[in-house]
């Protein structure tokens, strides 16, 4: 961990991304603690119809929506949903994708079978497939995560498989076999760590993508239910008022864009840090 600080200093993009993501994560964490009221100032569900559709002001920093709910409070609470979805998706897809991809990258029969299924899944437009699945399964936070995982897994599997296919011809794989390492050992101890750099980049893409997909599902009305504020459904709720009060959609949109940007910056920076060949002498 000694090198972490230096890596951050040497890589301003990584630093910026990490700072933004950390802030977002802190916001998300605070909103589930009793401190939520202090930071968010209002209950995100509290209705105040008299104050509906207000412009940003000292009392309502980001304005209010059509039911007079405070957008600032709702946006902060929305971070929770977006990040939970993004983190769960990125982790699950990485684990599932790596397991399938590595296994498949070494077994031709499984490869043909599994990859054709994956190709089939990838031939559906992501959002349409996600929409159809959520519509069938019903909209809940868990289902949203599940559906995005299903939609993203083929992409991750492909990346891992491709890397494994090229890595297995390397002579260090042969060397490892020559000292008596079994195939699973070679796969998981020698090949897996070498796939991490591309996998992390892919995971950061899916992290960002999951936030967007969750928002898109919310926007289309099949995402997280409205009583759980998420950036997607706040933007969605604001779309009818964009011409008279664009603040409703603007602020959650800004948070969303910043988080997605930060995730991409972090992914890019991590690649440089994790590759020992690019890392300076430690």
């Amino acid at each position: 961990m000694r090198g972490t600080g230096r890596a951050l200093r040497k890589n301003p993009n990584l630093l910026a991304g990490t700072v933004i993501l950390t802030i977002m994560a802190l916001i998300a964490i605070i909103t589930v603690t009793p401190g939520a009221r202090l930071v968010a100032r209002y209950d995100p569900q509290a209705l105040a119809v008299v104050h509906r559709l207000e412009q940003p002001s000292a009392s309502h920093w980001f304005g209010t929506d059509r039911l007079g709910r405070d957008i600032y409070a709702r946006t902060l609470h929305g971070a929770k949903v977006s990040l939970v979805v993004a983190v769960s998706v990125a982790l699950s897809v990485t684990v599932i994708g790596m397991t399938i991809g590595i296994t498949v990258g070494y077994n031709r029969t499984a490869d043909n079978l599994v990859m054709r299924v994956m190709d089939g899944m990838m031939s559906f437009p992501t959002l349409v497939l996600a929409l159809a699945l959520v519509a069938t399964l019903g909209s809940s936070l868990f289902n949203v995560v599940l559906v995005i995982c299903i939609v993203d897994t083929p992409g991750m599997t492909r990346v891992v498989r491709g890397v494994v296919l090229s890595l297995r011809e390397r002579s260090y794989v042969e060397s490892a076999r020559a000292i008596g390492a079994s195939m699973p050992r070679v796969l998981f101890r020698h090949i897996a760590p070498n796939t991490l750099a591309p996998v992390i980049i892919q995971a950061s893409v899916f992290f960002a993508g999951a936030i967007l997909t969750e928002a898109a599902l919310g926007f289309l009305g099949v995402g997280t239910p409205e009583y759980i504020p998420s950036w997607g459904n706040i933007i969605s709720a604001g779309r009818e008022y964009v011409t008279i009060n664009f603040w409703i959609s603007f602020f959650p949109g800004l948070f969303l864009a910043l988080t997605v940007l930060a995730a991409n910056l972090v992914g890019d920076g991590l690649r440089d840090v994790l590759d020992p060949r690019l890392r300076g002498a430690t």
Binding site: S171, Y172, S175, A176, A178, H190, N194, D275
Partner: peptide, 15 residues
């Protein structure tokens, strides 16, 4: 024991 030709790629770069 066996030693291979390419010393540059016979060792795993990330271990």
């Amino acid at each position: 024991g066996m030693i291979f030709q390419e010393p540059m790629s016979s060792l795993n770069p990330v271990l």
